[in-house]
Simulated scan of single mutants.
Amino acid sequence: MRAIQQLHTGDDFPPTANALDYPNGLLAVGGDLSPRRLIDAYRRGIFPWYEEPQPVLWWTPDPRSVLFPEELHVSRSLRRTLRKNRFRLSVDQHFEAVVRHCAQLRGDGLGTWIGDDMLAAYCDLHHIGHAHSVEVLNESGQLVGGLYGVAIGRAYFGESMFSEETDASKVALVALVDILKRGGFQVIDCQVESDHLNSLGARNISRLDFEALLAQTIDIAHDEGIWRLPDTCGDLL
């Protein structure tokens, strides 16, 4: 059995080929959540996922769940939701609130993987322009859905989404794809397969193919002016 590398300040990540088969993709433990460390991780297809106060765990699963923007599946029922135009949209106006909603305790009582350190780390990335949120508000102006993630070059690394009204998180994803298409983004990293994301068009590719895709996209700058949306979701159609 391969040993997991312990990271200390300044240490580089080990080669991703060293990741464990079980648990799938566990690569390293320790280190910090500084912007430099996080950006370096994402550029290599590595992300943090752990429950505080445990040490940071770093992952690069194989296969990798991805969504290519042109393959987004918008069902007839979701199109009806968009046409009803009952949701308002915004970008990066409520970033911390979106992360906090995503961090709410799971229904199984096991806690959340988005603790205070993770919240602070992604807010730091947001403040330097690498983390972005899409927000969905109801007719009363309440935040009822959204998502957040990290943008590097022309790859978007999705972190989490939430929904407090039917279809709100799906509307957020449609809105995100609208932004990314305008910016020439090639891929949305969904990390680990789920039935929910598969229903929206996500699929698995190998780790090697994912890393090759990143090598072709993360150094191609995108126009920062793309991070805007129409006021209401009906305009996404």
Rank of each mutant, 00 (worst) to 15 (best):
2 R>Y: 00
2 R>S: 01
5 Q>S: 09
6 Q>D: 01
6 Q>I: 12
8 H>T: 02
11 D>Q: 05
13 F>G: 03
14 P>V: 04
16 T>K: 02
20 L>N: 00
21 D>V: 12
21 D>G: 10
22 Y>G: 03
23 P>I: 02
26 L>G: 08
37 R>S: 04
38 L>C: 02
45 G>A: 08
47 F>G: 05
50 Y>I: 11
50 Y>W: 15
56 V>G: 10
56 V>Y: 11
60 T>E: 06
63 P>F: 11
71 E>H: 14
74 V>L: 04
75 S>M: 01
76 R>L: 02
77 S>Q: 03
79 R>F: 10
87 F>R: 11
89 L>Q: 15
95 F>G: 08
99 V>D: 07
103 A>D: 05
108 D>V: 14
113 W>K: 05
121 A>V: 06
121 A>Q: 02
125 L>K: 10
126 H>E: 06
127 H>C: 09
128 I>T: 11
136 V>G: 08
137 L>K: 07
137 L>T: 07
141 G>H: 07
141 G>L: 12
147 L>C: 04
148 Y>R: 05
149 G>N: 05
151 A>D: 11
158 G>Q: 00
160 S>G: 04
162 F>V: 01
164 E>P: 00
168 A>L: 06
171 V>Q: 01
174 V>K: 00
175 A>Y: 01
183 G>C: 13
184 G>W: 11
185 F>I: 13
187 V>N: 13
188 I>P: 06
191 Q>V: 07
191 Q>C: 06
206 S>C: 10
210 F>P: 10
210 F>H: 06
212 A>P: 00
212 A>T: 07
215 A>P: 01
220 I>F: 14
220 I>W: 11
221 A>L: 12
222 H>A: 15
223 D>T: 15
232 T>P: 04
233 C>R: 01
235 D>N: 14
236 L>S: 10
